Simulated assay, not measured.
Amino acid sequence: MILNSDKIIKEMINYFNKDVKRVNHALKVYSFCNTIGALEQLDDKELLIVNLSGILHDIGIKEAEKKYNSSAGPYQEKEGPAIAKAIMNKYHIDNDIIERVCYIIGHHHSYNKIDGIDFQILVEADFLVNIYEDDMDRNAVTAVRNKYFKTKTGLAILEDMYL
């Protein structure tokens, strides 16, 4: 099933319940996911996976803070997939798409687990936003580029914005 991402965006906004910083972060990551995915010429299914991953990648952060008093990556990865799955199940998204999105969400801070273009694009999109939000210096940005960026589009955007 091909789904317009707007309903999932609305679900994410509702879930974060006035946490504007987290909503804005997710929307920025989603935007980069969509742009990189489209320019890398993903097919409709791959683009949907990338977009859903971008919207929902940090959805476990509230539960992580509640359970572990921490927003650390491993806790987000642990808590996020179940919440994301519950949201996506409301829209009868194909199970293989849900499972892939949940895999990406469940490993999005584990860069050694990147196993496909969809996951790669989410990581690049998240870094493009985090570089700004974390006010990384040029040396850190260069290190991130060299270690984590692989797509032609992601590299070009990183260069255009930060280097």
Rank of each mutant, 00 (worst) to 15 (best):
S5P: 02
I8Y: 00
K10Q: 06
E11K: 14
M12E: 05
I13P: 07
N14Q: 07
N14C: 08
Y15P: 12
N17F: 05
K18M: 08
K18T: 09
K21S: 13
V23L: 10
L27K: 14
V29S: 11
V29P: 12
Y30M: 13
S31H: 09
S31M: 12
C33R: 05
T35S: 08
A38I: 14
K45D: 10
K45M: 09
E46F: 08
L47N: 07
I49N: 03
V50K: 00
N51W: 00
N51R: 08
N51C: 11
G54L: 01
G54C: 05
D58W: 01
D58K: 03
I59P: 00
I61N: 02
K62E: 01
E63L: 06
E63K: 12
A64L: 00
K67H: 15
N69R: 09
S71T: 13
G73C: 07
Q76F: 06
E77L: 10
P81G: 06
P81L: 04
A82I: 11
A82G: 13
A82H: 11
A84Y: 07
I87Q: 14
M88G: 10
H92I: 08
I93N: 02
I93S: 00
N95D: 10
D96T: 04
D96Y: 13
D96P: 00
I97K: 02
R100A: 12
C102Q: 06
Y103T: 11
Y103L: 13
H107G: 04
H108V: 06
Y111A: 07
N112D: 01
D115L: 10
D115T: 02
G116F: 04
I117Q: 02
Q120P: 11
I121Y: 01
L122H: 04
V123E: 01
D126H: 08
F127M: 09
N130Y: 09
I131V: 11
Y132F: 05
D135K: 13
M136G: 10
M136D: 09
D137P: 13
D137C: 14
R138N: 14
N139I: 05
V144C: 13
R145Y: 13
R145V: 05
N146G: 11
Y148N: 11
F149H: 12
K150I: 07
T151K: 06
T153K: 04
T153N: 05
G154R: 14
L155E: 10
A156L: 15
I157K: 00
L158V: 12
E159W: 06
E159N: 15
Y162S: 04
Y162K: 05
